[in-house]
Write a protein that binds this DNA or RNA. Structure first.
Lengths: 153, 153
DNA sequence: GTATGTGCAAATCATTTGCATTCTC
DNA sequence: GAGAATGCAAATGATTTGCACATAC
């Protein structure tokens, strides 16, 4: 479905290494493993999912390291955090350049992504009139996905 | 600014009492105090803000009771939870019927509300084609509010 | 009087931090 | 070899829960 773009991954890796170098940080074992694991994940993921994946695969990284590297990746602009109402931190790749939004199923918690169509621009006028400087926006739909509807009794 | 609509509050109180009665729950001291306090709050609030407020005013309620009553109020449909990315639970009144969205300042964390203009309908077609049953949506803008821009050096 | 509500202290759960040890440069 | 990164265990902070006592109906 989502074809893994190797060139893109290499670009992201280069961006990450550049960021680390600039900040005087090192290319450690943990950062490499977790970078790869993040690149291997599709679309969204939570910190917890990533930790579980690493532990299952018996990768040599601990829970705190996963969180520390996630923060590195955030700083480097490789991933971004998306606001969802539950207790886990949600992330997604930045390299998937097209602006998009999310619909989440309230049963299975899976996501559907859909492209941004700029209709939110109509709100810009209102917010700018209030002197609010817009840095970004997210649109969240919630509902029930096809599969979960079929599972209903 | 936000005028407190006494009639509305009484309607909400009636709704709450009805809900409690139906569920065989009681109209306790804690539920009354916290209901009043929630009705007194404007727009958004977090669980933590409400707890602080109650403790400052030396109301006779404990932290766990605030959380328990918030859940009662959610169940009764008096308040709804809104998804923001931080660690606190965010709530808002349901009685403020007009659909609206939020812009949050990344510096001071205050909110601006703005009316829903139904532009999101353009997305419905896409999601429905995927068999996704939409139950609701939220739009979050983030940026810097007028006051915080003025405070910048 | 009995079932429900409450406060308290302790449990959770995701995330973060202190620190001694190990690794990268 | 010096400065960073890591794992471990413990700290944190919001929220929840168990339980003995208090209260609403």
């Amino acid at each position: 479905m989502l074809k893994v773009d190797l060139q893109m991954i290499e670009n992201e890796r280069a961006k990450f290494l550049r960021h680390l170098a600039k900040a005087g940080r090192r290319v450690s074992h943990g950062r490499e493993i977790i970078f790869d694991e993040v690149m291997r994940s599709h679309g969204h993921f939570t910190a917890e999912e990533l930790v579980k994946e690493c532990l299952q695969k018996k990768l040599k990284v601990s829970r705190p390291t996963v969180f520390r590297v996630l923060n590195d990746l955030l700083e480097a602009g490789i991933i971004r955090e998306t606001a969802f109402g539950d207790k886990h931190r949600h992330f997604e790749h930045v390299y998937d350049e097209k602006p998009h939004h999310h619909a989440q199923c309230i049963r299975c918690h899976n996501f559907i992504e859909f492209p941004d169509r700029k209709e939110d621009k109509i709100y810009h006028q209102y917010l700018e009139k209030q002197g609010f400087k817009i840095l970004g926006h997210e649109m969240h739909f919630y509902g029930i996905c096809k599969d979960c509807q079929l599972k209903e009794v």
